[in-house]
Nucleic acid binder design. Structure first.
Length: 477
RNA sequence: CGGGGUGUAGCGCAGUUGGCUAGCGCACCGUGUUUGGGACGCGGGGGUCGGCGGUUCGAGUCCGCCCACCCCGACCA
């Protein structure tokens, strides 16, 4: 429950974000720098994200397993790019049970290495492939600068790790997962994302190719919201994942990895929230509908509460909460649940009981405009439709916002202005030097080259050399 | 790691040139009146003043060291 008003998004987006997380009780600062405690409301949201993703993984033939959190230091060192990428941010355990360990143990920053090690034991023949394993886990990356959900020392995620017979199958898997992530983001979270390919500089340490779904937050910054990597044979060679193929010849397997983390909670907060607080997408919201009973005295309460209880039973198919707190006023409750982003609020007072009606307030439409005055008849069906419409409006609003802040440009001066308040969509020659110079001069990084883009003729927005594709450039989290 | 800032009740803060039993708002507990857009009265509980050491008759206040966190930078899937 919170008393003071939230800062306005337009005035201080970053404070808005930090305070909202605490006031809405999604998470709290832990006593360790850079770590967070995910509170029940935040975790319930994450659980719904998990459910939506996990179902999709299972439908596409993946299974869950669990690998250890401790990884021998030497494993990390087996893949050169991988260790170079991760060594600055490793947490390393050197003492166990009071004894200095013979070999330090790394707290996993990601599990390619230890899973690669196991796959080399499990894979002998092409008949053992593909392996399609996912794990839900926590990982640790010792970041310099942290932010709740977006970048914490420890975070929760799923990491899928697959091994395949051929390069083609691995690439197919990588793209299949990118599609799955896109479908999840759009249809569950109402977060419009742009699926694309990462530049060499931005790709995963040890991957041949990294794909991403990029989302625009309401301050126009980009957030990488999920990634899918084609690891080629890099890890197979480092960990000796070999198999006898159909011609009885020894081959290295082709592997992939992919992940979505608690960072996605940040994506939801910053894609949909407004000055009143959170707006949660109905398919993921821990509470989809809150019922606030309204009465002035005991007599009115006796009339209202039985109807509320009856309605609660009738609406079991929804994630529903009756706010029967006696110590706060309905007005307070309205603001409280709006802060927490509950999509729909049902108000039932004596007048409604008389009329067999109720009031439904929609979180995304402020004030009286958003209130629907409905009959109790067929109320569940009505609410189903209202929630679907809600989802569609959220998605539409986020998409419109994004599209109106993306600008195509072929001029570097214009480019510099665009990335101050949006994304630039510009030709880039692919040269890392241009990418680095742009980052240096504008703070904008390459986000991705969208997959649905046709090859065309253009000139790099920075150096003027010929270029075949446009790339999104933006400031990013 | 560099620059800046802050540590006093759960949160936000005040506490003057060192001086009485360390205060205020919100939150919390009890109670009564309230309740369709953030209610109010009355009565309560809660503190090793970040830590250690020093100066002093006396330290939240002055000095030294340490610790933690925040912001900016460097860094970063």
């Amino acid at each position: 429950m919170s008393e003071e008003k939230l800062p306005k998004q337009s005035e201080n987006f970053s404070e808005w974000y930090n305070q909202l997380i605490q006031k809405a009780e999604l998470a709290d600062y832990a006593p360790v720098r850079g770590c967070m405690v995910v509170r029940p409301y935040g975790w319930a949201l994450w659980e719904n994200i998990q459910k939506a993703l996990d179902g999709r993984f299972k439908e596409t033939g993946h299974v869950n397993a669990a690998f250890p959190m401790f990884i021998p230091m030497s494993f990390l060192e087996k893949e050169k790019e991988h260790v170079e990428g991760f060594s600055p941010e490793l947490a390393i355990v050197t003492i166990g049970g009071g004894q200095t360990l013979e070999e330090p143990l790394v707290v996993r920053p990601t599990s390619e290495t230890i899973i690669g090690h196991m796959y080399s034991k499990w894979v002998q023949s092409y008949r053992d492939l593909p392996i399609l394993i996912n794990q839900w886990a926590n990982v640790v990356r010792w970041e310099m600068r942290t932010r709740m959900f977006l970048r914490t020392l420890e975070f929760y995620w799923q990491e899928g790790h697959t091994a395949h017979e051929t390069a083609e199958e691995a690439e197919e898997e990588t793209l299949k997962i990118l599609d799955l992530y896109t479908d999840f983001a759009v249809n569950e979270a109402a977060v419009p994302v742009i699926p694309g390919i990462k530049s060499e500089a931005e790709k995963f340490a040890g991957a041949n190719r990294s794909y991403t779904i990029e989302a625009m937050m309401r301050d126009t910054k980009a957030l990488q919201s999920g990634t899918s990597h084609n690891l080629g044979q890099n890890f197979a060679k480092a960990f000796d994942i070999t198999y006898l193929d159909r011609n009885n010849e020894l081959q290295y397997a082709w592997t992939t990895s992919w992940g979505v983390s608690t960072r996605f909670v940040g994506a939801i907060i910053m894609s949909h929230g407004d000055d009143q607080g959170l707006i949660l997408p109905p398919r993921l919201a821990p509470i989809q509908i809150v019922i606030v009973p309204i009465y002035k005295n005991e007599e009115a309460k006796q009339k209202v509460m039985p109807v509320v209880k009856q309605l609660e039973k009738q609406l079991k198919q929804f994630r529903i909460k009756v706010d029967d707190r006696e110590n706060v006023t309905p007005g307070f409750k309205f603001n409280d649940w709006e802060l927490r982003g509950v999509p729909l609020r049902i108000e039932i007072g004596p007048r409604d009981v008389e009329n067999n009606s109720l009031v439904v307030a929609q979180r995304d439409i402020p004030g009286k405009e958003g209130k629907l005055f409905l009959s109790m008849d067929h109320i569940a069906d009505q609410l189903t439709t209202i929630l679907d419409d809600f989802h569609n409006r959220l998605l539409q609003r986020a998409t419109d916002f994004r599209d109106s802040h993306i600008h195509k440009t072929d001029n570097y001066e214009e480019f510099k202005n665009i990335v101050q308040q949006g994304w630039a969509y510009a030709y880039w020659c692919g040269n890392a030097a241009c990418e680095a110079a742009i980052k240096d001069e504008t703070k904008a990084t390459t986000r991705c080259r969208p997959l649905d883009q046709e090859k065309s003729e253009g000139k790099c927005v920075y150096c003027g050399e010929s270029a075949e594709y446009r790339t999104y450039f933006a400031k990013a989290y």
